[in-house]
């Protein structure tokens, strides 16, 4: 079947993830929304790989996964460190750039 439904689904998931990043205050939930966006991108890659007929898209999705994993590791370590010092994991706490 044509990749169009998959792409539409990917777009929807991406947008929902984007809204989630903007709306949630807990840092870890924000991170999860970012993961959702990355996954939506992966879906698009795989759909296009099938449409084009070579595996480059799947390789790209694979790399995205690897990098996402590394990113999650470091990001969560940072959140843990911040939580240890500040006792709060709210994203709104980092507002020193305020006018």
């Amino acid at each position: 079947m044509s990749p169009t439904p998959f792409l539409v689904l990917s777009a929807l998931l991406f947008s929902i993830g984007a809204i989630g990043v903007l709306v949630r205050r807990n840092a870890i939930v924000v991170f999860m929304c970012i993961e959702l966006m990355l996954n939506a991108g992966n879906l698009a890659f795989v759909s296009f790989a099938r449409q084009v007929g070579n595996l480059d898209g799947q390789v790209a999705a694979f790399f995205v996964m690897v990098v996402a994993a590394a990113e999650v590791v470091v990001g969560l370590a940072i959140i843990v460190t911040i939580y240890r010092t500040r006792r709060s994991a709210s994203v709104d706490d980092a507002s020193l750039l305020k006018y």
Binding site: M1, P3, T4, L7, A11, A49, R50, N54, L55
Partner: peptide
Amino acid sequence: IAQTTIGTVVGL
């Protein structure tokens, strides 16, 4: 997405 013409799906 709706505006693009995809063409035939080659398949893997």
